[in-house]
Design a protein around this nucleic acid. Structure first.
Length: 567
DNA sequence: TAACACACCCACACACCAC
DNA sequence: AGTGGTGTGTGGGTGTGTT
């Protein structure tokens, strides 16, 4: 993506873009307000692309094209003088430059009769949709502009441009279409590509400080398409509840649940330092994720590594329970990522072991954070009651996690690779066994509440929708989404995946069969493997192999064999 | 001098990789 | 398959310079 030959690709490709059929330069006159640097950049681009500048408002407008970046800033006298002469957006020049070609200028013509603000928004949103689908092209274009020393942004050190009402509306609308990403930096970087007068920093700051209060509704975004949903009449659906951002927070209850889960794995404790040593934490984070899916298993694991293990699991449990017992509000662990604060905390812990501090900076500092856990209302002495309350709170706040994964493993061709990449060499029988025995929280393959609320057909249709989603990432994402959306137990999705060799089009018959009969496995179906068939593959009896090849085809049998053997 | 556009900060949630 | 090393970029800000 970076630019090895920035200097070499200079002007030559642009020379003949702004010329007429005879090769003569097109003439441009620039109208309205521009910053100094913007104006000179625009002029540079025009000249580089073979165009010509007409500096003064020409008496004869024939053959001159009028450009503006802000129609409203053109004074009335000038407008009168021009009459019906068309005026074009300066983005024509930028777009020609970016695409290194002469674009039809008519599409950049400003229609003076329509609401200009709305027009700006519509146009930019259209561009933003295009941008999403060809992000790399746009990014590449941005690189081209930047590396030619023609950055389209004002220089923050020498100029400062006010936000116009149109720009504010545009920002708000853009955020409403991307409500989950409203806190990110990335969203405003994308937005800045459509607003040449302001930087990403500036736009983000503008939104947070001046516009966020107006975000009293957002569009209802379809998680599968990332597009706003429409109602029966074709109007966009608006919702008042802002969706969660794309990154969660750890509450005190989360930390407590984490500590309770890992506590049984404490093998020994160094009595002088209080340092705890753990047995292998087998299955702990999978289990946490399936009980509290608002954090992923890698996140739970990281929380353990960076916080709980440093703080002390027993110490946090004691702190939490004590606080609850005293009708206080426990704080989550904080400030464990800077080395200095960890050192400080170690010192404190050494001198006063049961100080009740939730983190290295002390309880006063932590309680000043405004995102800390909700009140634990239980005033019971019982730790179990507090834990139950915490568990309820945590699962109530569970939400389907976002999906920002960039790889789509469904598009990978080598299933063996996929299977082995997920270390999935268990036989199907083993998967079923572990699903039923190891994880007591997931005894039902498909959660009861889902089956109560949906007919089997609805459930299957929803599953198909999810499976056909382009936004799906890897197996982990699949497990997460099927769990949160349809209550599929972690192990059940893993089983489906294994049975189908990763080919999700075979999920439907398998699940259909399960819904009808309660049986996990489906015999004699092309593309779907059973434990018995896997055993046949392992044993490699010739007759059996022929039967399998008849059923699944030679290629699938070979792929399956390799996957099972981990080749 | 106040307002505000723009730059920059940093803890940390979440992830990936190699072993 | 668990674990340590470490990258990425969100989320919630604060700092700096211009008008």
């Amino acid at each position: 993506m970076s630019e090895p030959n920035t200097k070499k690709q200079k002007l030559t490709p642009y020379k003949n873009i702004l010329v007429d059929n005879a090769g003569n330069p097109l003439s441009f006159h620039i109208l309205g307000y521009f910053t100094k640097s913007d104006r000179s950049q625009l002029i540079n681009m025009i000249l580089e692309m073979g165009g010509k500048i007409v500096p003064d408002l020409p008496p004869l407008v024939d053959g001159v094209l009028f450009l503006t970046g802000d129609y409203k800033s053109i004074d009335e006298d000038t407008l009168k003088q021009l009459g019906d002469v068309p005026i074009y957006r300066d983005s024509f020049i930028y777009q020609c430059f970016v695409h290194k070609t002469s674009l039809p200028i008519d599409t950049f013509r400003i229609d003076k009769n329509v609401d200009l603000a709305q027009d700006l928004i519509n146009r930019a949103l259209q561009e933003s949709v295009d941008h999403v689908t060809s992000a790399s092209t746009a990014a590449a274009a941005a690189v081209v502009v930047a590396t030619n020393g023609l950055s389209s942004k004002p220089d923050a050190r020498t100029s400062k441009i006010q936000f116009t009402p149109e720009e504010d509306r545009f920002i708000l609308d853009f955020v409403r279409r991307n409500p989950k990403r409203r806190n990110t930096h990335q969203l405003y970087t994308e937005l800045a590509q459509h607003m040449k007068n302001h930087t990403n920093h500036s736009i983000r700051h503008r939104f947070r400080r001046n516009l966020s209060a107006q975000l009293d509704w957002v569009y209802d975004i379809d998680p599968l398409t990332n597009q706003p949903r429409k109602d029966e009449n074709g109007n966009y659906i608006k919702v008042q509840d802002l969706p969660q951002g794309i990154r969660g927070h750890y509450s005190a209850q989360d930390d407590y649940n984490l500590c309770l889960s890992v506590q049984p794995f404490i093998e020994s404790v160094d009595e002088t330092t209080g340092q705890e040593f753990f047995k292998p934490l087998k299955g702990v984070f999978d289990d946490l994720e399936s009980r509290f899916p608002h954090h992923t298993k890698t996140s739970w694991r990281d929380r353990f590594r960076k916080f709980a293990s440093k703080y002390g699991v027993r110490q946090y449990i004691a702190y939490y329970e004590k606080t609850v017992e005293l009708n206080g509000v426990p704080n989550p662990m904080t400030n464990f990522t800077s080395k200095a604060s960890i050192e400080k905390f170690r010192e404190r812990r050494g001198t006063s072991r049961n100080s009740g501090l939730p983190g290295p900076v002390g309880v006063e500092a932590v309680s000043s954070l405004d995102h800390i856990s909700p009140l634990v209302t239980s005033n019971s002495n019982s730790a179990a009651a507090a834990a139950a309350a915490a568990a309820v709170a945590a699962s109530a706040s569970a939400s389907s996690a976002p999906n920002t994964s960039t790889t789509n493993f469904f598009e990978q061709e080598n299933i063996a690779q996929v299977l082995s990449a997920h270390n999935n060499e268990q036989s199907i029988a083993e998967v079923i066994e572990s699903a039923q025995n190891v994880n007591t929280h997931e005894s039902e393959p498909i959660a009861d509440h889902v089956r109560k609320n949906l007919t089997d057909d609805e459930l299957l249709d929803k599953m198909d929708d999810i499976l056909s989603s382009r936004s799906l990432g890897g197996l982990d994402d699949l497990i997460k989404i099927l769990y949160t959306e349809l209550g599929f137990a972690h192990r059940y999705t893993e089983f489906l995946f294994t049975s189908c060799s990763g080919d999700v089009i075979f999920f439907r018959p398998l699940v259909e069969h399960f819904l009808l009969t309660g049986e996990w496995e489906l015999e004699n179906t092309r593309g779907i493997w059973t434990g018995r068939q896997d055993e046949m593959l392992r044993a490699s009896n010739l007759d059996d192999l022929h039967k399998l090849i008849d059923l699944h085809g030679k290629e699938r049998v070979e792929t399956r064999r390799k996957a099972i053997k981990g080749e």
